[in-house]
Amino acid sequence: MPERLPVYAAPADDPESDANLVINAPAVTVWLTAFLRDQIVIHRGFQRAIVGISGGVDSALTAFLCVRALGPQNVIGVRMPYRTSSPESLEHADIAIRELGIQSVTVDISAMVDAYLASVPEASDRRRGNVMARCRMIVLFDLSERYGALPVGTGNKTERLFGYFTWHADDSPPVNPLGDLYKTQVWALARHVGVPEAIVTKPATADLIEGQTDEGDFGISYRRADRILVYLLRGYGTERLVRIGFPEAEVLLVREKLDRTHWKRHMPTTAMLTTTSINDYYLRPVDY
């Protein structure tokens, strides 16, 4: 039997692996902390941040990062329950607030939401959810003015790519530390900075409708969606993803959510009439 050479094969892409989603959590923490300090204090001249704390992992992680950047005395957590909000959400928001030792404010949005919805009793759950999200931003921005604290956004990359937010509501705070982190990475970072495990492990929910979960709305788990999104954003086509081993139905589902929500990730479309059209020809960066 002739001697055979030892073989060293490069690992193939694995649809069951999170390898593409691994982050250096300590380095990301340092980076995002510096980002928050820079954008809130140096660039925008605020000393304080205000965060809507829903009881979920995104807002808890955001608050934890803000505390690292500014200190607990400079972070305000706002709970904004609606009458149908899950009691567990309120409880988890409390856990995060207590853990951080930050000032908290609770504003029940039921009265303002119901005042409007009373005039549109036929409103669908989707419309009701959007009204709640927009009312929460009215409260958050008003309290921002009251406390002199900059609103900090909590949206992650997966929900941004899925368009899973209310336009000009959840996405409206001027600074967002998590927007380039997939949900899988949010979980990893949350564990690293010490977000309580009960918050990290619970099913994500927008909590706009009783019993709602994000993954139930999507039809796919965050983890599986994230593995597909990484490849789609890299430029791989559906056929190649299927060749890697992803189920075609899942790829098409993710792709469809991505493709029909590009508009949501942009400012309103303005009709261009001149060669000084703002953000078309007249270009200045946000920090100019």
Partner: peptide
């Protein structure tokens, strides 16, 4: 060094 917008 420093951040310009979200770019550090």
């Amino acid at each position: 060094v420093g951040f310009e917008g979200g770019k550090g």
